[in-house]
C-alpha cells in the first residue's frame, strides 16, 4: 500500500506546483495591447462583435454577472456608464464569463431576465465555452476594460475597477472608468491605467 500513497504524494506536489505556476503567469491583455474581436451571443439571441459598432470610438467592456454581490453593487453604475458614454462613442459591452453549470444564477435565461428587469441599454453577452475572458485576462466580476478604437484596432487603455467605493456611490472620490474615457474623448492619455478591486472569481 505504500506505493499508491507515495504516488499520490507526487501527484499532489505536481498539481500544487502546476496551480502555483498558473497564478504567477498573468496572461491576457496588458495596457496598449490590441484586442482581437469576438462573436458572442447577446440576451436577444443575436451574435455581437466589436466590429458591429461602426461609429464607436471605443468600448467600455465589463465582465460581470447576475450573482456576484460586487457586480450587483455596481450594476446601476454600469447602466449609468452606458447612458452617459454610448452617445459619445463609448458603449458598454457586458460579458458574463461564468460557467452556468457551476453558477446556475448566471444561466442564459437568468441573464435575459436580469437584462429585461433592469432595462439594460447595452448588450449582455454570454461567454459560451469561456473562450473570451481568458484572452482579456479577466479574473473576476466586475472587471472593466476600456478600449480605444484606433487604426491598429481596439487598444486596451484601462483595466480595473469602476471607481473607488463599491459601498456608497455618493462617497466615490475617483471614477476610474469615467476618468479614462473622458481623457480618451479629449485626446489625452489616461493617467490611471490600472486599478485593483475585490471581486468574485470567475466560475469555471
Amino acid at each position: 500500500m505504500k506505493t499508491p500513497v507515495f504516488l499520490s504524494m507526487i501527484l499532489v506536489t505536481f498539481i500544487s506546483d502546476f496551480t502555483n505556476n498558473n497564478v504567477a503567469l498573468n496572461e491576457g491583455y496588458q495596457i496598449g495591447d490590441v484586442v482581437s474581436d469576438f462573436e458572442l451571443k447577446n440576451v436577444d439571441g443575436k451574435m455581437i462583435s466589436l466590429s458591429d459598432f461602426k461609429d464607436a470610438k471605443g468600448f467600455i467592456i465589463t465582465f460581470t454577472c447576475n450573482t456576484c454581490p460586487f457586480a450587483i453593487a455596481y450594476e446601476d453604475r454600469i447602466i449609468a456608464l452606458d447612458k452617459k458614454y454610448a452617445s459619445k462613442g463609448y458603449p458598454v459591452i457586458a460579458i458574463n464569463p461564468n460557467n452556468p453549470e457551476v453558477q446556475p444564477g448566471d444561466s442564459y435565461k437568468s441573464m435575459q431576465l436580469r437584462a429585461q428587469e433592469k432595462g439594460y441599454s447595452f448588450p449582455y453577452l454570454v461567454d459560451e465555452g469561456q473562450h473570451v475572458y481568458p484572452k482579456f485576462g479577466a479574473t473576476k466580476t466586475p472587471h472593466m476594460f476600456v478600449l480605444q478604437k484606433t487604426k491598429q484596432g481596439n487598444v486596451v487603455k484601462y483595466i480595473g475597477a469602476i471607481d473607488d467605493n463599491y459601498k456608497d456611490t455618493e462617497a466615490v472620490k475617483i471614477k476610474y472608468v469615467e476618468d479614462a474615457v473622458d481623457a480618451l474623448l479629449k485626446g489625452e492619455t489616461v493617467k490611471q491605467t490600472e486599478t485593483k478591486a475585490i471581486g468574485c472569481s470567475i466560475k469555471v
Binding site: K140, H143, A161, Y176, K196, G199
Partner: peptide, 14 residues
C-alpha cells in the same frame, strides 16, 4: 481597495 490590495500582494488582481 486600489490602495490596499497591492499592499497585500502586487500580483493580486482582487
Amino acid at each position: 481597495m486600489n490602495a490596499w490590495i497591492p499592499q497585500v500582494n502586487k500580483d493580486w488582481s482582487g
